[in-house]
Design a protein around this nucleic acid. Structure first.
Length: 480
RNA sequence: CUGGGUGUGGCGCAGUUGGUAGCGCGCUACCUUGGGGUGGUAGAGGCCGUGGGUUCAAGUCCCGUCACUCAGACCA
């Protein structure tokens, strides 16, 4: 079987129309359904199961690093939102307001949280009094609302699910360490669970979170060469603490402001998975978060013993904690093959009368289309091995794509030429640190700064835009 | 927000100079079906996104509005 052969006709080819391909997968793989409110989508069981798996793994990582879950209200009074100047300026244009309770107009309108810094700050002001109260390492899994103009399933919706971590520390050092720790947790999660390589780095001044001292991000490169911010971690210094009057008494009996962080990832990660691993036959899910890791397709299922054997295989895989599904519906085997390919199930097990006779089954891998016939004795080991191979193979393929689409440039013309000849991707180029040059690059080439990566490379000594001494090496790109 | 495109059974589409809706898939029943979306017979299902207008008559023409979508701007 040819590797690139398209066998699922429901999905538009990505080379034909990438945007349509993406939308097709979202709908045909039954991840989402639209509603009558723009930018608000139903996350269907199959899509939500992916999110649940993401949640489960990440939550475990948060707990392992000492965090506790809490839940803040969804309404923020206007006066509270106003307290930190940069923060409110950053979010005001996209908040939704509640103005009435029943028929009565509210004395003060309430904003539907776009993020919960203000709520956490109000709370911390109440409960932090002594250095003994610190740190507080909180996280919450909730939804937030941002009234976006352009919306797309998972990538940018008006309401979306996320987790937001909010921590408060006695010292700046501790808070900075936390900011970095969580960025690393995200990067590790993306690599180990989503098989998605990311670039870790710092955001430029103009791109940082409203109210933050510094913002860090993980950036991933999608199949079409566009960049996607997959997660962020912010260091706040004591700015929010000052604005919200959070103070504690330190060991030397002085009243001081604590230091804070926040960090988050959203359901956008699902969009990232779609656009990192998906192909022309549909979704390709990383085994760690796939709702179904192995699907069993019985062949000639009406014949004696086939379904019994299929059920037996199901039990055996289930017993070793593989998320397994047996499709014994009336659809033809071919229909089922296409269906589960579209849905990105990592491994397919085919079992028919011939196989039973020979004591074997056929195992197919979604990510590379490979099919093998194995003895039934080796079912468990082979499926486990194929899942492992899928993860590694998907990661390496994505990493290779990222590398192949990352270009080092030393002049603006070179950037434009590269984009034109090779298509979108990450551009590595030097920058002086001046915002005017950052804007200049965007204006002249169309790519914006994505991040200043932790792994510095001295590509040249001069800023690509103004020619003055360069301070940073920056990843640039078109973004979602 | 600006500009373009699209809204007709569950899905994908057709519908001429305005005359009261048609096809494929899917669905239901029965039969058939061995390895890439089986084949057959019969049947059910839509008032055309939504609000107004023109007209004897509107899916079709006009205006508004909502949603989807593409490009951009904006934003994280």
């Amino acid at each position: 079987m040819a590797k690139d052969k398209k066998m699922v006709t429901e999905i538009t080819s990505m080379d034909e129309d990438f945007a349509q391909w993406y939308t097709d997968i979202c709908k045909k793989a039954e991840l989402v359904e639209y509603t009558s409110v723009k930018g608000c989508m139903v996350i269907r069981p199959y899509g939500y199961a992916v999110w649940e798996n993401i949640q489960k793994i990440l939550d475990g990582m948060f707990k392992a690093t000492g965090h506790e879950n809490v839940c803040m209200p969804m309404f923020i009074p206007e006066s509270l939102l106003q307290k930190e100047k940069d923060h409110v300026e950053g979010f005001a244009p996209e908040v939704a307001w509640v103005t009435h309770g029943g028929n009565e107009k509210l004395e003060e309108r309430l904003c539907v949280r776009p993020t919960s810094e203000t709520l956490f700050c109000e709370h911390y002001a109440n409960i932090v009094h002594s250095y003994r109260d610190l740190p507080k390492l909180y996280n919450q899994w909730v939804s937030v609302v941002r009234w976006e103009k352009t919306t797309r399933p998972f990538l940018r919706s008006r309401e979306f699910l996320w987790q937001e971590g909010h921590t408060i520390h006695a010292t700046a050092e501790e808070a900075i360490e936390e900011t970095e720790r969580m960025l690393n947790v995200y990067a590790q999660f993306c690599e180990e669970s989503l098989a998605m390589p990311v670039v870790k780095g710092k955001k430029t001044e103009s791109d940082k979170f409203a109210g933050a001292v510094s913002t860090y991000a993980i950036e991933a490169l999608m199949h079409d060469g566009k960049a996607l911010q997959a997660g962020t971690s912010h260091y706040f210094g004591d700015g929010f603490a000052k604005a919200f009057g959070i103070e504690y008494t330190d060991k030397s009996n002085k009243r001081v402001n604590p230091h804070q962080t926040s960090w988050g990832v959203t359901t956008r990660l699902i969009g990232a998975v779609i656009m990192t691993h998906g192909d022309n036959n549909g979704l390709v899910l990383p085994p760690a978060v796939a709702p179904v890791q192995a699907v069993i397709i019985p062949i000639a299922q009406h014949k004696d013993g086939v379904l019994d054997k299929a059920n037996e295989l199901k039990k055996r895989l289930s017993d070793i904690n593989i998320r397994v599904k047996l499709d014994d519906s009336e659809n033809s085997p071919g229909w089922k093959f296409a269906e589960y390919e579209m849905k990105g199930v990592p491994v397919r097990v085919e079992i028919g009368p011939k196989d039973i006779e020979n004591g074997q089954c056929v195992i197919a891998s979604r990510w590379n289309g490979e099919k093998v016939t194995v003895s039934l004795d080796e079912l468990e080991t082979t499926v486990q091995q194929k899942l492992k191979e899928a993860h590694d193979g998907m990661y390496n393929k994505a990493l290779e794509n990222q590398k192949n689409r990352t270009y080092a440039c030393t002049t603006l013309d070179e950037i434009s030429k590269t984009l034109e000849e090779k298509g979108d991707g990450f551009i590595k180029a030097m920058w002086c640190g001046d915002e005017a040059c950052e804007d200049g690059v965007k204006e002249k080439t169309g790519v914006g700064s994505r991040c200043i990566p932790f792994e510095h490379e001295q590509l040249s000594d001069k800023c690509i835009c103004c020619g003055k001494p360069a301070k940073y090496m920056v990843y640039w790109g078109k973004a979602y």
